[in-house]
Simulated assay, not measured.
Amino acid sequence: MRILIAEDETIIRLDLRALLEQAGFEVCAEARDGEEAVALAASSEPDLALLDVKMPKLDGIDAARRILDERPIPIVMVTAYGEEELVSRAVEAGVFGYLVKPFRETDLLPAIATARARHEELAALREEVDTLAEALAARKAIERAKGLLMEREGLTEQEAFARLRKASQISGRPLKVVADALVATLTT
């Protein structure tokens, strides 16, 4: 797994790099401020990012928000500040973990594993939502087309559906495409 580290304190950044590399991760980029983190996230395409909250130019939470706008990846905030307001902002931005310094390897590795797992679950849920939304849109289009056929041609619901299905089979196009075309034709 490729990891981006964004930490303005050099010693902590080097410690993080050593911990991650010892654990078998690849550190693909290191940033000293939030703006550099955003740029490096775009150019190095990490699988996960560790961001300090308080950094020059752009804080880690705003950097996380920008990174996630470009490409959703799991992000773990690493900070010396555990104030509720900062944690709330981080959660609102969409980060998947929050570690308060000082931390040990036994804290960091589970935070990374948890962030990855939560990110994968969210990606699966988003995919499922997209699939369900597409199915619902298809269902609405087919129902509308059936209704128009029933009204205009005096067909039963079964006859209207059979006609749509036959048109789909003959044309080799999905039922939704045929339904959309029929609706467009009959409503103009």
Results as ranks from 00 to 15, higher is better:
Arg2Cys: 06
Arg2Lys: 15
Ile5Lys: 02
Glu7Ile: 07
Glu9Gly: 04
Glu9Val: 07
Leu14Cys: 05
Asp15Lys: 11
Leu16Asp: 00
Arg17His: 13
Arg17Trp: 04
Leu19Pro: 00
Leu20Asp: 04
Cys28Val: 11
Ala29Tyr: 10
Glu30Thr: 10
Glu30Leu: 10
Ala31Asp: 08
Glu35Pro: 06
Glu35Met: 15
Glu35Thr: 12
Glu36Ile: 07
Val38His: 00
Ser43Phe: 06
Ser44Phe: 07
Ser44Val: 04
Leu51Cys: 03
Asp52Asn: 13
Val53Lys: 01
Leu58Tyr: 02
Ile61Tyr: 02
Asp62Met: 11
Arg65Ile: 04
Arg65Asn: 08
Leu68Phe: 01
Leu68Gly: 00
Glu70His: 10
Glu70Ser: 13
Pro72Gln: 10
Ile73Gln: 01
Pro74Arg: 07
Ile75Glu: 05
Val76Thr: 05
Met77Asp: 03
Gly82Met: 00
Gly82Arg: 02
Glu83Val: 08
Glu84Met: 12
Leu86Ile: 11
Ser88Phe: 07
Ala90Met: 04
Glu92His: 13
Glu92Lys: 14
Tyr98Glu: 07
Val100Asp: 00
Glu105Arg: 12
Glu105Trp: 06
Leu109Lys: 06
Ala111Trp: 02
Ala113Lys: 14
Thr114Gln: 12
Arg116Thr: 12
Arg116Tyr: 13
Ala117Phe: 14
Ala117Pro: 08
Ala117Leu: 15
Glu121Leu: 09
Ala124Met: 10
Thr131Asn: 08
Glu134Ser: 13
Ala135Met: 14
Ala135Leu: 10
Leu136Asn: 11
Ala141Gly: 04
Ile142Leu: 01
Ile142Val: 15
Ala145Arg: 03
Gly147Tyr: 10
Gly147Gln: 06
Met150Asn: 09
Glu151Phe: 14
Gly154Met: 08
Thr156Glu: 09
Thr156Gln: 05
Glu157Ala: 15
Ala162Glu: 15
Arg165Lys: 14
Lys166Ala: 12
Ser168Tyr: 04
Ile170Lys: 08
Arg173Gln: 14
Lys176Glu: 14
Val178Leu: 05
Val178Asn: 07
Ala179Ile: 00
Ala179Asp: 02
Asp180Ile: 00
Ala181Thr: 09
Leu182Gln: 08
Val183Lys: 02
Thr185Pro: 08
Thr185Tyr: 09
Thr187Met: 07
Thr188Asp: 14
